[in-house]
Each structure stands twice: as structure tokens, then as C-alpha cells.
Amino acid sequence: MAELRFRRVTKAFDEDAGLFDFSVQVEQGQAFGLLGPGGAGKSTALSLLMGFIRPDDGEVSIRGMDCFTQRHVLMQYVGYVPRDARLPARTTGDQFIRLLSAARGDTWRKRMQKLMERLDLNPLGDWAYMAPDDRRKVVLLLGFLNDPKILLLDEPCAGLDPNARNAVLDLIEEERQAGKTIFMTSHVFEEVQRCCDQVGIIREGRLVTVQPARALTYTRQKVYHITFEDIHQAAAFAQEWETGVELLRNRVIVAVPASPQVLLKTLTKYTVLDLVGGREELESSFLRSFGGDLV
């Protein structure tokens, strides 16, 4: 039985917003990343798993139990990191962590200490005056605190500085290696590629594709910046190459899907002053493939 399952789920907020005929299943111990631009329906998927909303059609279940009606049972196994949720007013991060820990019937002191060190977090300040980074870390700590078997993470690294982001990604990777089931959303390829086994790409509420995270690497293109001796040669090359070319005076930017061998062979006919190659940004690749804005 799948640990997490969406079966032909539709949850429509209006014509284009929500989730439509969405089917995904995540096995026990697997990490699944849902990747997509802002407003694609990633948080809706998590809200359905958390039982905050119920689907118009289809089924959402964890361990075979309905997420809306059996939420109170499922929450024993689940750790949740919301994307954007405030702490109660006039509460310090420390107070709130201890409160939720006590509400779960355990103090989880050792784990709390360990997580605070890992995230380099000082939760003593009032939430209202905490730096955004620290706020995010408090929310992350709350999600991981009770050593849950299932982690539901909504943009876990959103708003974190690079060091903190790395620490969080390391933590998620460790949880995956410890056999936890993970469902996370992101709009950053690198995050899901690093932490997940499977990646689903979503756009306008519809699942475009599900593929192994490793496959993301192969779908990326390589982009070369070529500077020619003069503008005529650049134009002639652009005309000859035809697709994936951008002409900028005597410079050409060209996207090459696989091996650069054909490109190099073509360039022997021209006088090339400079050739800079590199991997296309994953985000650009996403935009090229699926369109839309990633933020």
C-alpha cells in the first residue's frame, strides 16, 4: 500500500486555480518533490494531505486513511512545515516549541537541542522581532521535532540564506536516509534533485510529468556563448543553426540539447574569438519546457 496517495484528485478554487485530476503515490521511505511555479497548486496538494481542505473529487490518503476524516489519527505520524504561518502574538520561538512539544506529550529535549544546533537557531526572541531566517528555522524545527515518520514540507528552504538552506537540505537528506517518507514542494530544481527520489512537475494545477530526480539532469540543455570575428559571421551562423539561437551583434547564444560535437564541427567554418560553455540553469530549463514564472 502506498504511504501517501492522491487518486484522481480535483480541488478547484476557480477555473485555473487548484488541482485537477491529480494522481500521485509515494511509497514508504520514498522522497517525492513537487516542483512548479507559484500558484501551480503545490500548497493545495499539501493542504489536502494535511486535511485542511477536502477534495471536490477523488481521494487523498495517508497509510490508506482519508486525510480529511482521519486527520486526527494521521497526525501522530506526520511532521508538517507550512510555508507561511505565524506564531501566536507575544510568544517566543522557544516557548512555542516547548508548548507544542508538551502538547504532543513529550518534551523531545534531546532532539530539540540537536535540531537547534543543526539549524544554528536561537529561538529565544519574540516572534514579532525575529529575523525572517530564524522564524523559518523555528517553523522547520516544529515540523521535525517529534521525529515523524512522514514529513510534509511546503517550500522548506524558502527565505533561507545559503548556509541555512544547506543545513536544511542536509537534514532532509538524512531523514530520507533514515527511511522517512517525504513529500516536499519547491520551485528550485536543485532542492528536489538533492533530496528526492521522484519529482513531479506541476503547472496550472495539472501534473505534467513524474520522473526520477536523477533524470532532471539529463533534460537540461547546455548553453554556449560564442563570439565571432564580425557581425556577418554571427548572422551566418545563426541562419545555419536555425533553432535555439539568440543573435546579439557579433555574439550568439545557442542551446545545445546533448553532445556539443555537431556545434564544434559547424564552428570550424567560422572565425571564433571566444567560446564559453556551460550548463543551462535548471530554472531556465523549467521555463523553457513548461512556461510560467517560478516565483
Binding site: 494535511m50 497526525m75 508538517y80 504561518a85 512555542f96 507544542l100 504532543r104
Partner: peptide, 9 residues
């Protein structure tokens, strides 16, 4: 804030 309370069993 409700998200935290409803994340409890």
C-alpha cells in the same frame, strides 16, 4: 497559527 494546532493529533 491554526496550522500548528491542526498538525497535532
Amino acid at each position: 497559527e491554526m496550522a500548528y494546532w491542526l498538525a497535532l493529533p
